[in-house]
Design a protein around this nucleic acid. Structure first.
Lengths: 147, 147
DNA sequence: TTCAAAACCTACCGTTTTAGTAGTATTATA
DNA sequence: TATAATACTACTAAAACGGTAGGTTTTGAA
């Protein structure tokens, strides 16, 4: 039950970009350095975000990445869904509870627990935007977000 | 970001026991059969629950397991914590946010996101007991728990 | 007292996922 | 055309996952 480095690094990268001029293209090298993440590994993560239309890219000299949308419209959920794949807490829910082909489905008493957990996680992460994080919008100076 | 079979099987086992006479010892063989889970694999999971004082056990002829506590006092959180280990969504939080020794800790903008996620997950799972599941306490006939 | 049914213990194992590294190709600008 | 950037693909060591296998110990009944 862990978020992998892919999702965590992607989030940090997007937050960092949200702190830059929205027009400016930032090179992966610089992000990797300031975030202390392997640039080569980031190269592998970033295409997930460009394909998901979260990042705009510029190749060649002085190229780099910038946010493709306003950071207030990009939710954590969207980022993690792109990088972590399906965020369902159990595989039985991966294609929606309706398309569950488990033979025990109808009698499974625990399935509603997982479905509710899925919902709780999704709603929490949908409620936090990249901008929220970049501006430390929980504000209180506390250690967590209360939405 | 998945609950493994250990946690899922453990939950199903406890729910099944909650449906039996609380005094009766049920053999693992029977649980494995009715739940369609490898008995040998369950043998590996069950000690986690006995050590956690959720199960009482009886060895030898006509032995088996029964719940050590009233199912209304056993929460999903407790079960998953015992079987899945620390349920923190990122390793940075595994020993509590205070004992995080990451050098980036103080400047890490994403940490509060994970801490809040941790909280949301914990509170949801703490709110559901084994008895709730066994009696299908969400009641509505819906697909998830709303606590 | 012996037999059988149960829990208990521990080693092993194939597969998948994770967290990268490495090298090359392509693109764009000065 | 040199250079600095992204893009793509292959590889890999280590860990986690989901079991299987085989033996030991305990207990109650015949």
């Amino acid at each position: 039950m862990k978020i992998s480095t892919k999702g965590r690094y992607a989030l940090r990268l997007l937050v960092e970009l949200a702190c830059h001029d929205p027009e400016e293209y930032v090179a992966l090298k610089d992000i990797a350095e300031s975030q202390n993440i392997s640039k080569k590994y980031l190269e592998q993560i970033v295409p997930l975000l460009t394909r998901g239309r979260l990042l705009a890219t510029n190749r060649g000299y002085q190229g780099g990445y910038r946010l493709a949308r306003d950071p207030s419209t990009i939710s954590c959920w969207e980022v993690l869904h792109l990088t972590e794949g399906d965020m369902a807490p159990v595989s039985c829910l991966e294609n929606g509870i309706e398309n569950n082909d488990c033979p025990r489905r109808s009698e499974c008493l625990t399935l509603p627990v997982w479905n509710g957990l899925y919902k709780v996680i999704r709603e929490y992460l949908e409620g936090i935007s990249i901008e929220d994080i970049a501006t430390n919008a929980n504000g209180t100076g506390g250690d967590d977000y209360i939405i």
